[in-house]
Amino acid sequence: MIIYVSGGVRSGKSRFAQERALQLSEEPVYVATAKIWDDDFAQRVQRHQQERGPEWTTYEAERDLGRLPLENRVVVIDCVTLWLTNLFMAGESDVEQTLAAFKAEIDLLCRVEATFIIISNEIGMGIHADTAIGRKFADLQGWANQYVAALADEAILMVSGLPLVLKK
Rank of each mutant, 00 (worst) to 15 (best):
D107T: 08
F116P: 03
C79F: 06
T85P: 06
L22D: 03
L84C: 08
R52L: 09
K35Q: 14
A100Q: 14
G53N: 15
S93Q: 15
L22T: 12
A61T: 04
G66F: 11
L82H: 12
T57G: 00
I117P: 01
L24T: 04
K35V: 12
E62F: 03
F41I: 05
P54L: 09
A114F: 10
Q46I: 07
D39N: 14
D38A: 03
A17Y: 11
D94F: 07
E113W: 03
L109S: 05
F116A: 05
T81H: 13
R15M: 00
D39P: 00
F41L: 13
F102G: 09
R52N: 07
W56G: 08
A42H: 13
D107I: 04
G66D: 13
S14K: 14
A101C: 08
T115G: 02
T58Y: 00
W83C: 09
R63N: 11
E55L: 13
L108F: 06
E51M: 15
R47T: 12
L99T: 10
L68V: 05
E27N: 15
C79E: 07
T33E: 10
K13S: 06
A21Q: 07
L24R: 11
R47P: 00
A114H: 10
K103G: 01
Q18C: 10
Q49C: 02
I119Q: 04
R47C: 00
I119D: 09
E60I: 06
L24W: 08
L65W: 01
A114Q: 09
R20M: 15
E122H: 08
A104P: 00
A101F: 04
R52T: 06
I119L: 15
T85F: 04
V31P: 02
C79K: 11
V112Y: 00
L87N: 08
I36L: 09
Y30T: 05
E19C: 07
E60Q: 13
Q50N: 13
L87G: 05
F16N: 01
Q49N: 14
K35G: 00
L24Y: 05
A101I: 00
E27A: 14
P28E: 01
R67L: 12
P54I: 09
E105A: 06
L99V: 08
V29K: 08
E27W: 00
T85W: 10
L70K: 07
S25F: 02
M89S: 10
R15K: 15
V80Y: 10
C79R: 11
